[in-house]
Amino acid sequence: MKTYLYLSIFSAFALVACNKQAEVKTEVETEQTHDEVVRFTPEQLKQVEIVTTSLQEKELSKTITVNGITKLKPENEMEVSSLIDGQFKNSKLLEGMLVTKGQVVAQLDNLEILDWQEQYLVAKAKHQVAKADYERQAELNKTQSASNKVLQQAKFEYKQQAILIQTLGSKLQALGINIQTLNENNIQRSLPIRAPFTGYIDQVMVTNGTYITSNTPLFKIINAKDLLLQLKVYEADLPFLKVDQSIFASTNNNKTEREGKIAFINTQLTPEGYGEIICTVQNQTDLTPGMYVTAKIELAKHKTYAVPTDAIISFADRDYVFVQENETTFKPVEVQIGVIENGFTAIQNAADLLDKQIVYKNAYAILMQGKNLDEE
């Protein structure tokens, strides 16, 4: 296989390449005529100091830059609805209004709640009577003045009313009625609709006088504190991330870096090939939901096979190293590179280079020799 290398370089490149690595842009055109090896004569090798090495196991890491947006915590965003049907009234809600947790923000009219409160109060009264009767029958049973059957019936009535009180009370509490203060003098016709937490009204979906059905969204409330960052990470970088790992984020409006931590890693990929990570972040003074952010993350160190970065030769959008086949012969091998750190580059297809001698000093001199041979 014959390789024609059209190189755009200075005329003195051969001398410079002996001492310093340079990036060379090339175009490659291939013909099937002979193998790709580059051969030197012993005399030529005396003029070029070629040094080889082998794959080395290194602990490498790198810093990546990712993009994303600020995001509300799930518990800080809620659409509020009613558990029952009714007429929506007495609302003064406006978008952007601050409300506090438990604040009554509207009411709902439904005549059924009158019946439920009545049933609850009647059940409480019957429960007191049933309890007194059960206790009296238990005392009589001790002296055989009351049969076991009568005692069991009294106990049944007592337990039945207790269950009814518990059921009706739970229903009324779910609707927002305080059963601790409920009595025959303060039966309510309207249900209070309360803010579930302190926050801002983001959206109002209904107006006063609207008759709504259960689970109809009434308004949306958000709490913009404790925002999260939702960041996109390339698939290849996901294995080197871990929970509690530090990140440093900034916005377009404020380049000051804010420290954060990775809280969750979602390895399910998007159609574009990204995974998503959710991060906490400090110093949220000027952050609002939906802002674009940029973050830097130092990937965790990991063991990998690597070669000195000077050994890598790039041309035609591919990366190569030269392998020494014998004392005067060298062959290019394509490599897939990974992390670059501290003068070393990770090799992802390391199996192709195990037990090989790899040129790391004056590799470009071999490239130039190959070019000269082709021209001849």
Rank of each mutant, 00 (worst) to 15 (best):
D310E: 13
T256V: 15
L72D: 05
T210G: 00
Q44I: 00
P192D: 10
I163D: 14
T270Y: 06
T100P: 15
L151V: 06
A106Q: 01
D133K: 08
R194E: 11
T100K: 15
E375Q: 10
L45Q: 03
I201D: 01
A249Q: 02
L172G: 04
E95R: 06
K220E: 10
T63R: 12
F40W: 01
M368V: 04
M97C: 10
I177Q: 05
E157P: 01
N362Y: 05
V323W: 00
H302Y: 07
E77L: 09
K73Y: 10
T304D: 08
Y4R: 03
F13A: 07
I337M: 06
Q87L: 09
M97W: 05
G68P: 06
C279V: 06
A249W: 03
V51P: 07
N215L: 05
E272K: 11
V335K: 01
E376Q: 14
E157A: 15
I340G: 07
A363D: 01
I212W: 14
M205A: 13
R39G: 00
Q117N: 06
T26E: 12
I64F: 14
I247Q: 03
I262P: 00
Q324T: 00
I113K: 10
Q188G: 07
R136I: 12
K356V: 05
A14I: 03
Y200K: 08
G199L: 06
L7F: 15
E36W: 13
G176V: 02
L164Q: 15
L182N: 05
E49A: 13
K126I: 04
F248C: 04
E334L: 04
K126A: 11
L108W: 00
T285G: 10
L114A: 13
G338I: 08
Y305S: 01
K242I: 08
T198G: 04
A224E: 14
N254I: 09
V16F: 09
E139W: 14
G169P: 07
E157T: 07
G370P: 06
E276A: 06
I201N: 00
Q180D: 14
Q153S: 15
A300P: 04
K261V: 13
Q137L: 13
T329V: 07
K92F: 15
A130M: 09
I113Q: 11
S214I: 00
I347Q: 04
E36Q: 14
M1A: 11
L172F: 03
H302N: 09
N186T: 09
N90Y: 14
I366M: 04
M291V: 02
E259A: 14
L172D: 02
E376K: 14
V104Y: 07
N362V: 00
E334I: 11
S81L: 13
V105M: 02
K92C: 12
N223E: 09
K296R: 15
K155P: 03
K220Y: 09
A146Q: 08
Q230G: 05
I366V: 07
A346F: 14
I277C: 05
D286E: 09
E327S: 07
Q119C: 09
V38E: 00
E77P: 02
T267G: 11
K255C: 02
E57W: 11
T304I: 03
D237E: 11
Y134S: 08
N90L: 12
T256C: 11
